[in-house]
Each structure stands twice: as C-alpha cells, then as structure tokens.
C-alpha cells in the first residue's frame, strides 16, 4: 500500500504541518502528555549535528525527537 501521509521526519527545515495522529501507542501516550496532539501545529527547525535527531516546535513548544518518534507522528502536509 502506498503511504498516504507524511511524517514529521519528512518535513524540511522551516516547513510547517498539523499533526494528524501518532501511530505508536507508547509514544502517543508520551507525546500527547507533553501536549503534542492531533491538530498541533508542528514546525521543523533543524536536524542534530550528528544523525537523526530533530528539533521541532509544537504549538511554540520546543521539542527534541528521535527518528522513530518523528516517524510516528503523521502530518497533513
């Protein structure tokens, strides 16, 4: 099946999108508790110097996410 949604991981720097849902239930529990919810506006800020760690803003709150965390968040972009 084709992937219909993009994830936070695929956002380019300075690109914004709204979160649709979080696929992994454990990460969903963590991220929703931190205020990253369906409908939250996410802005990709930059990638870490070494490897795949992402600096994003979720409704203005700055968060650092690992690759698998960024991949679990589906966005509408």
């Amino acid at each position: 099946m084709l992937r219909r949604y993009r994830t936070v991981e695929s956002l380019k720097a300075r690109e914004c999108a709204r979160a649709l849902r979080i696929e992994d239930p454990f990460l969903a529990s963590r991220l929703t508790a931190m205020g990253l919810l369906p409908g939250t506006l996410i802005e990709m800020i930059r990638r870490a110097p070494f490897g795949h760690t992402y600096y994003i803003k979720a409704d203005g709150v700055r968060l650092a996410l690992r690759k698998e965390e960024a991949q679990s968040i589906l966005v509408d972009a």
Binding site: F26, L31, T53, V61, R62, L63, A64, R66, E69
Partner: peptide
Amino acid sequence: ERSYLALELPV
C-alpha cells in the same frame, strides 16, 4: 523501560 527522547528544550 522503553527508551525514548521526546525532550522539551526550555527557553
């Protein structure tokens, strides 16, 4: 314990 990052970067 499952490892995760999901860390807030404070002001």
